[in-house]
Design a binder for these strands. Structure first.
Lengths: 261, 261
DNA sequence: AGCGATAGTTAACGGTGTTCGCGCACGCGG
DNA sequence: CCGCGTGCGCGAACACCGTTAACTATCGCT
């Protein structure tokens, strides 16, 4: 709540540069040797500094990893929207497909990063307990803000594709038939949808949620080496996307074919 | 290929007991403080031993974690089949549902274990590279044998439910319509299905594979704190199972209702 | 010009995996 | 039943790791 943001003084600039360099070196360690290999002493070594000096910039290793993780969410989001922006605003189906394929592509190109982001959140944060993550989960804190911005990408797209007219969309959206749900589940799905800005009826809320589960499951299994189909993973993603589109009344082959005209 | 298995001498017995104790202590560390907290020195400390002594039983920390991981796959499999065995042999749909719910239940009860098994395979094994895991992946080695035995549970069930008669099954199985697939994908899905012993047509091969992706995605997201719907996760699993059953022509509500008679 | 905040240093503590070399003692074979 | 050998455990040591404390020098602003 600073009413006056002080101009970035010279020191602040150098400080920002150092922080960026620290994160860059950490990112390199992550890419090269995996999440467990991020080491303060090694970072300091390659930067020509002494390890305790890094504590001027981060309160500890966990904080560094958390900040790096936040950057990765932003990078992934930017990667996805950049690819989507090559398509016209009205082609929301094309943008959704591009976002999904971009999600997988970034993940398989950056397996260690994906592991850090989606399978631990923070080292040592997966400790047991129903509330899962033992970290402070102030929902406005740094990793969560980036995660929400990332989720927002799909949320906005779902919202838009639903509120498009059939003419803009290029096909008539069919209301999927959701399975029977408990009242509590219906309420929570509705709440999650509105929280993400996707103001849609429950049938679409469930469908979109289920689609996200399928996309996440496919990508996570591929990255973690759990996917039975491993060589044709990209083709499998396309098949799954076809299948999901079909549940919304869209035949993707005809769609892309007619679009190609 | 030992033609004569030497009788378990007294020494071998003690050795086996020590190995079991080491893994038990490691398991306790994993459950209590997460995968990163498994420490040889701490294990030796609580066992009243010295750290290098453990090297008489495991060539290193990675080997211990790998062996522990293999045990966990067996434990998960046993948990699932034990619950399935409370149902009659002919109720394959009920067994499939029980197996899926058991998979989730074990995962949420053992989050650190699940993380170790399904999101890293072995610490430091997620290093970049197209072939993913940098470990020796001799498919008959210890972690992979247990993984295959685990996968076999679902594979057998899929095989059986498909080859059941409609009378045994209690409903007429509808052939799902798969999305268009590339020839390579069809071939690989077929190959994976036969490798797991599920000799089924491609339509069911794709459906079962997709079901496994959805189940894995749902459970992994819940364990890793990535699921939007977090409070009603169990109800969400039931909804997803309803949805998947519906794609095979089975209305689950009627099914379980008639079964309850 | 001087003062204070800031960035950097070295030393040290406790922790980790791993290797080496030694000794002891226990269980097996004669 | 007894000795022998082998497997077992130990301590020391090396190279890492995160983190803290005390201290210094330098840079920037007043």
């Amino acid at each position: 709540m600073e009413s006056v943001t002080s101009p970035p003084s010279r020191r602040d600039q150098q400080r920002a540069d150092t922080i960026a360099q620290i994160k860059a070196v950490a990112r390199d360690q992550l890419t090269t040797a995996g999440p467990a290999a991020i080491s303060l002493r090694a970072i300091a070594r390659t930067m020509g500094m002494s390890a305790p000096a890094l504590y001027r910039y981060f309160p500890g290793l966990d904080a560094l990893v958390t900040a790096l993780c936040a950057d990765l969410y932003d990078e992934l989001r930017r990667f996805m929207v950049a690819r989507c922006d090559t398509l016209p605003e009205t082609d929301m189906i094309g943008r959704l497909l591009t976002a999904a394929r971009g999600f997988r592509l970034w993940a398989v190109r950056h397996r260690p990063e994906f592991t850090l982001m989606f399978a631990s959140l923070v080292p040592g944060a997966v400790i047991a307990g129903p509330g899962c993550h033992s970290r402070d989960l102030d929902p406005e804190q740094e990793p969560y803000a980036s995660m929400r911005r990332f989720s927002q990408v799909f949320g906005d797209m779902f919202h838009k594709v639903f509120h498009q007219s059939d003419a803009e969309r290029g096909f008539t959206l069919r209301t999927p038939q959701p399975p029977p749900m408990t009242p509590g589940l219906r309420e929570e799905i509705q709440r999650c949808a509105t929280a993400i800005g996707a103001d849609v009826p429950i049938e679409f809320g469930y469908a979109f949620h289920s689609f996200w589960i399928r996309l996440y499951g496919l990508v996570a299994m591929e990255v973690f080496g759990q996917l039975p189909v491993v060589q044709e993973a990209e083709a499998l993603l396309d098949a799954e996307l076809h299948d999901m589109a079909g549940q919304l009344g869209l035949n993707l082959t005809e769609f892309t074919a007619s679009r190609a005209d």
